[in-house]
Design a protein around this nucleic acid. Structure first.
Lengths: 113, 113
DNA sequence: TCTTTTGGTATACTTAAGTATAGTAGTTAC
DNA sequence: GTAACTACTATACTTAAGTATACCAAAAGA
């Protein structure tokens, strides 16, 4: 194992740690797709609970992945805005979508046989 | 949420499900980097236990991500070989390495301030 | 007035993922 | 003969992640 591979593995594991669970990437994707409000994001990700969404959003704000803007009109309006840091995940997310798409095709092919 | 976003989310979640835990991507990376034998892969990923490696390799074989070749010389030699399916993850892995690298730089910058 | 919507929090629980540690059977090196 | 390596499996346990459910206050709509 040469030096490069050690550094690559470290970068890889950092990213994986950052992605963490099941929901962060879908949330990033949703926000980058233009969803801004809590219920809007929630509806865009079937199956997520308010608890998980709430926790993730808080954590993501702390990690500078998004900005939480509160507009104190009545009723109060809360919007989550992606940062550049969040958008920098775009390539990973696109690649994941591509992979998932072609993987599904492979599975479908197998099922046809 | 239009049709496209539903399909994208599905692809994304499929991929995330496939990646699963903490170890699969590092294992794929290791094997694609040329590591072939059990102990070789194990040593290339500090912290992994034989149990996790064993489980993952088995699961990955079942999912056609790799081929397990047994050479019945004495002593028996076992080699894990990546399939095209595994290599197709290359883009995701590269993007993750890139992200991890630049994220670390960002963190280092912050620490310097 | 009653229901629904918004933007969440609190509590309790389950399950999946991962860790720690030991052991197996065969082989080779000293 | 004993220590170390290969390629694992087995058992027991911990912890983190996720689920289920209920609830809150304020506002708007029917």
């Amino acid at each position: 194992m040469d030096r490069d591979q050690v550094e690559e593995l470290r970068s890889l594991q950092d990213t994986l740690y950052f992605i963490g669970g099941k929901w962060r990437i879908p949330i990033m994707n949703s926000i980058c797709n233009g969803n801004r409000r809590f219920r809007e994001i929630e509806r865009s990700i079937p199956g997520i609970t308010t608890r998980m969404l709430s926790r993730e959003l808080k954590d993501m704000e702390a990690n500078k992945l998004l900005k939480r803007n509160v507009y104190a009109d009545t009723p109060v309006l809360v919007e989550y805005e992606p940062t550049e840091h969040c958008r920098s995940f775009g390539n990973i997310i696109s690649e994941m979508i591509n992979w998932g798409r072609s993987h599904r095709n492979v599975v479908v092919e197998r099922e046809d046989c």
